[in-house]
């Protein structure tokens, strides 16, 4: 494959970032096509960030956080969920396949799950091809 997707992952400090670390500790391998940006809470993820990423040429964006009900800040992940839902609609209107945006809940103990989620998402983005329709940026 001459094209490698560029995928942005938001991970929350308490859960999914911990899960990513746990994946590392247990050496659960996943594709290197993702870059993780740490935020304190998935509720910090402004829809503007997602749009900016796609605007700059990202092929996929994955928002991750704590399982519903477990958010370290009470209900930040519920907010994230609503915002992502709104984004699915918006992306469609902007001509970006909504499947390029993902939302997953991963706890700090779920190293294997983190690796699986990333692997699946990368696979999905690869199947969709480059976001701008061409050969990649």
């Amino acid at each position: 494959m001459s094209w490698d997707p560029q995928i942005l992952v938001f991970a929350c400090n308490w859960c999914s970032y911990g899960g990513a670390d746990a994946a590392g500790v247990s050496r659960f391998q996943y594709p290197p096509d993702v870059q993780i940006v740490r935020v304190m809470c998935s509720g910090r993820v402004d829809p503007g960030f997602v749009l900016r990423a796609f605007n700059k040429g990202a092929d996929g964006v994955l928002v991750t956080g704590c399982h519903l009900g477990d958010c370290h800040y009470q209900d930040g992940n519920y907010k994230a969920e609503k915002r992502v839902e709104m984004l699915y609609t918006l992306l469609g209107q902007l001509g970006i396949q909504s499947e390029r945006l993902g939302l997953e809940w991963i706890s700090a103990a779920e190293g294997q799950r983190f690796a699986n989620v990333i692997t699946d998402f990368v696979g999905k983005i690869r199947r969709l091809g480059p976001a701008n329709g061409g050969e990649g940026p």
Binding site: L8, D46, R52, A53, K56
Partner: peptide, 15 residues
Amino acid sequence: FKDEQIEAQIDAMMG
């Protein structure tokens, strides 16, 4: 965790 910082991170990721 200012907006500018996160936006700069996103830009940097894309080069």
